[in-house]
Design a protein around this nucleic acid. Structure first.
Length: 552
RNA sequence: UGGGACGUCGCCAAGUGGUUAAGGCACGGGGUUUUGAUCCCCGCAUUCGUAGGUUCGAAUCCUACCGUCCCAGCCA
């Protein structure tokens, strides 16, 4: 367990008996897009901390801005949180608190801590000052409480147009922290809300709604990302100036970035809407839906974030770290199979053409308890084109003319003849096998340098394999502000292999089924797959030290 | 030029005055292996953004400087 400052802090609070030793957190997504792997970090921290200290976590939709939010996202978000393996104690919506929020706003008006302002957006910007100059007070700042209350009520009643008035906190227009320069608490939006319908035409801002919603739910630790650090004084000010007892502690941590991708809902939305990808669940997307379809195990995502740790320094984590977490998980749990991506036919000259030998082979080399599968061994087989070379370099362990190699789970073969096609390329190979070296026989102890995978030409099933590569060509697609990030998209992020040959049993596996094609990579059955036309997505390749050697 | 935060090995990240400066990933070397996978060993910061200072003793305290990120939405 990696130590981190939030855990330390909560541990201290619990030890000190704060909140009666309770730990209650929340995960507060805005329903305006799909969750991505960056959210998984926040989910892991919020749910993880509560779980660790025997507390609970609420899921709360931060739906204070109708017009930017859409109903369909609620379900997708819940699905994704559950997929990660977390379950919330209570399900809430900021919109559930609109009545209470309104009452608290009235309370602030009555204590002269808030006022109705008629400045328009442009004027307000000018009055706010700049980073280096203080702001100026609005002419409306000293309205009487009664007047403010009347105006606020009329805002609520729909007597004014959008933007005509706002409710602002009365704090300090000269505050060095711009968030404290009389921030807006309510704005007029004559637009229906997907949950409250036409009940409201004024809606609270994030700053006003968030902390109070936390307090209403009895949240003890409100864990969020760094950009809200500047908002904490406001979070605290609000809770200090209304009559509510609970005062959650906001603690901020750094978002986790991953190279060769983008993690912002805004940008992901663009990729979807502008057709750069096939939707939110395109397996190239870093969305949880995309990663799920790609075949990433949820536990791998959780372990990945755990291993990366939690701190306050902005970081970019290499994609390979994530991929290794996925490999670790899949290596343990994925059953093995064989597939040939680029088939090269071989004929075993001394194997009876009418014979089909059924082999009982393990589903996992290290876990016998996973059981076995049956594969057909026949006279004609397919092997990988890459596993044969006419004139290979020195350290090449695979098949070459006159050379020997072991067929995985079967016997050793020798390449006796290379048959060329009309174009002068290799059409097929004629090989002979050594019957004494069949797996299980004493002679199988004979060693050869290489072992290659294969599939029976007559029993193998043709399939489509989708091979995915990184979505972007550059490590940080948003580094250069002058270049739109879509310019850096990798045109080869998807490679479709239409004539791969797989073990036929796989055709009937359900969507989501994860497996390893030995020597090739981890794959998952795509929802598009049918028994007639199997489609599998490559989750991640295997580590390939040969590629490293060959590349040198 | 205001405010907030961050700078420890290539990438993450522990560490909060006395430790040989954790761990993971990457990398290098060796072993096992019917996946060039997995697995197993070994190696990998006399140094903590820089410069001063305090102290018997500092990555940890002080000062200054440098660098990076966030904030001027009626977004969250």
């Amino acid at each position: 367990m990696v130590a981190h400052f939030i855990r330390n802090r909560i541990r201290e609070d619990v030890a000190a008996g704060k909140n009666g030793g309770q730990v209650i957190t929340r995960f507060p997504p805005e329903p305006n897009g799909y969750l991505h792997i960056g959210h998984a970090k926040s989910i892991g921290i919020n749910f993880g901390m509560a779980e660790e200290f025997g507390g609970s976590t609420n899921l709360r939709f931060d739906d204070t801005n109708p017009g930017k939010e859409e109903a369909l996202f609620y379900d997708r978000i819940m699905e994704d949180v559950r997929w990660l393996g977390f379950d919330w104690q209570e399900l809430h919506h900021a919109s559930d608190y609109f009545d209470q929020l309104f009452d608290f706003a009235c309370e602030l008006i009555n204590t002269n801590k808030a006022y109705v302002d008629s400045l328009d957006a442009e004027q307000m910007r000018v009055y706010r000052g700049t980073l280096t100059e203080p702001g100026r007070e609005s002419p409306d700042r000293n309205r009487s409480a009664a007047e403010n209350m009347d105006l606020f009520q009329r805002m609520k009643n729909g007597e004014f147009a959008d933007g005509e008035y706002t409710l602002r906190a009365r704090i300090d227009m000269a505050a060095p922290n711009i968030n404290m320069r009389d921030p807006i608490l309510y704005r007029i939006r004559k637009i229906d809300h997907h949950r409250t319908g036409s009940d409201w035409c004024i809606y609270p801002t994030y700053d006003f709604a968030h902390g109070i919603s936390d307090a209403i739910e009895g949240i003890t630790h409100s864990l969020c990302t760094l950009e809200f650090e500047d908002h904490r004084p406001l979070y605290d000010w609000l809770l200090d100036h209304i009559s509510i007892q609970q005062h959650p502690q906001q603690i901020e941590f750094a978002r986790g970035n991953i190279d060769f991708t983008v993690l912002s809902k805004r940008r992901l939305k663009r990729l979807v809407e502008e057709g750069f990808v096939d939707g939110w669940d395109d397996p190239r997307m870093p969305t949880l839906a995309g990663l799920r379809r790609r075949g990433y195990p949820p536990l791998a995502i959780r372990k990945f974030w755990d291993s990366v740790g939690v701190s306050k320094s902005e970081s970019i984590i290499p994609m390979i770290v994530l991929e290794n977490a996925v490999r670790d998980e899949l290596n343990e749990n994925a059953p093995r199979s064989m597939a040939v991506l680029n088939p090269l036919k071989i004929i075993l000259s001394n194997f009876d053409a009418s014979e089909t030998r059924w082999l009982e082979v393990p589903l996992h080399p290290q876990h016998e308890d996973m059981g076995t599968r049956r594969i057909a061994l026949t006279r004609e087989l397919y092997i990988e084109q890459d596993d044969f070379m006419l004139d290979p370099p020195g350290k090449y362990f695979r098949l070459k003319p006159g050379g020997e190699v072991r067929l995985r789970n079967a016997f050793i073969i020798r390449c006796d003849e290379v048959v060329e096609n009309a174009a002068g390329g290799v059409d097929h190979l004629v090989c002979s096998f050594d019957p004494d070296t069949m797996s299980g026989l004493p002679g199988a102890k004979r060693k050869v340098k290489g072992t290659i995978h294969w599939v029976s030409a007559s029993h193998g099933k043709r399939a489509t394999l989708r091979l995915y590569d990184r979505l972007f060509k550059v490590a940080n697609p948003i580094a250069d502000k002058a270049v739109d990030f879509t310019e850096h998209l990798n045109p080869a992020s998807l490679q479709v292999i239409d004539n791969a040959i797989i073990e036929p049993d796989l055709a009937t596996q359900p969507a989501g089924h994860q497996l390893q094609f030995e020597r090739t990579g981890y794959f998952a059955v795509d929802p598009d797959s049918t028994p007639e036309h199997p489609v599998l997505n490559r989750t991640v390749s295997l580590r390939d030290s040969w590629a490293k050697i060959a590349g040198q």
